[in-house]
């Protein structure tokens, strides 16, 4: 185990890296990093459901999308809305959707859970496509005003500047990821793992299964909504395409590539995907081919993902085993 000093050093190195990153790498890579960070929060939230509690969802893009639309629509219709409140709008609208969905889904088995999410996810997608006067259809909602971050009379920071927005996004996303990490360390987090490993036993111990799942479900939906909200602010555009089912699958793939069941796996997976997309789109036209091949290779040869690979090699080369 790492001792406290090394841990603090590592955290401060990470912090310094995040702070100087936009100064060193310029605007383009800053934006790439924000995209990655959004995907990371989204994947971490899904991982709470998939890796920790064992529920596969094929439709969580709807929470991402509803969060994004919530923020965008609030900014279009309410003049002078503060930035933080607009993010809270995204969070709240995703939470509201989760609140409506929770009673329907918490008692379902794993397969039915996945399928019903696919149904509602596609319903959300087609609704976003067809309710043109609210969501803008294929064109989506774009060019809405991005309010500056300000406390009246104290300071006001322009958020249309990429570097400023980078810091803002890092704080929001970082705090969100930290909250989710904290949740996994609480007794509630242990309960989640317990539900995954042996739901009956948790039930016999006297915990209320549906209610526990509902709380977790709200949490996951809400934080997916925050990721969506930041995405909408970052792109200054949200269209129905973000709700498409592929955007539910990509997160599952990132989790698999990173490592299922570990907290930092999805972040790693999101990073791998970001780098891959960056590299493949630069050197070849055939992005899908490369990603498809990598998915096939990963699942055939490293089904536990990168984190699993790390543990495999660690035990193989760096630990002594009694024969």
């Amino acid at each position: 185990m790492m001792n406290k000093t090394t841990k603090w050093i590592l955290w401060s190195v990470l912090l310094v890296f995040l702070i100087i990153y936009p100064l060193v790498f310029g605007i383009y890579y800053t934006n790439v990093f924000v995209t990655f960070a959004i995907a990371a929060l989204y994947a971490v939230a899904i991982q709470m459901l998939l890796g920790f509690t064992g529920f596969l969802s094929f439709g969580h893009a709807m929470y991402f999308g509803v969060g994004a639309y919530g923020t965008a629509i609030a900014l279009v219709h309410i003049k002078g809305l503060p930035l933080i409140v607009s993010v809270l709008f995204g969070f709240a609208s995703a939470l509201l959707l989760a609140l409506v969905m929770a009673p329907l889904v918490v008692r379902l088995s794993v397969t039915a859970f996945a399928m019903i999410h696919m149904a509602f996810g596609m319903l959300a997608y087609t609704l976003a496509l067809k309710l043109r006067n609210i969501t803008g259809g294929e064109d989506g909602i774009g060019a809405f005003p991005i309010p500056p971050l300000r406390i009246p009379g104290v300071f006001s920071i322009d958020m249309t500047d990429p570097t400023n927005f980078y810091y803002f996004a890092m704080v929001i996303l970082g705090v969100s990821i930290w909250i989710l990490w904290f949740v996994t360390k609480t007794p509630f987090g242990c309960l989640m793992v317990g539900i995954r490993d042996n739901a009956n036993r948790i039930d016999y111990l006297g915990f209320k299964l549906p209610q526990t799942k509902a709380v977790l479900y709200l949490l996951v939906g809400g934080f997916a909504g925050i990721a969506g909200s930041i995405f909408a602010l970052f792109q200054n555009l949200i269209s129905a395409m973000e709700l498409y089912i592929m955007h539910s699958f990509i997160q599952i793939m990132q989790i698999m590539v990173g490592g299922i069941g570990s907290f930092f796996g999805p972040i790693l997976g999101a990073g791998v995907f970001a780098v891959l997309e960056e590299l493949t789109s630069r050197y070849t036209q055939r992005v899908e081919l490369v990603i498809g091949l990598i998915l096939i290779l990963v699942i055939m040869y490293f089904p536990t993902g990168l984190i699993g690979m790390y543990h495999h090699f660690k035990t193989r080369f760096f630990t002594r085993q009694a024969d």
């Binding site: 699958f249 793939m253 698999m256 081919l289 091949l293 055939m300």
Partner: peptide, 23 residues
């Protein structure tokens, strides 16, 4: 080969296959 891993493995593998076919 991935059938033993359950639905998640198949999901990723078949998405990979369809991406390759598509491209």
């Amino acid at each position: 080969r991935v059938h033993v891993m359950g639905h998640i493995g198949e999901l990723i593998l078949t998405v990979g296959i369809s991406l390759v076919i598509l491209d």
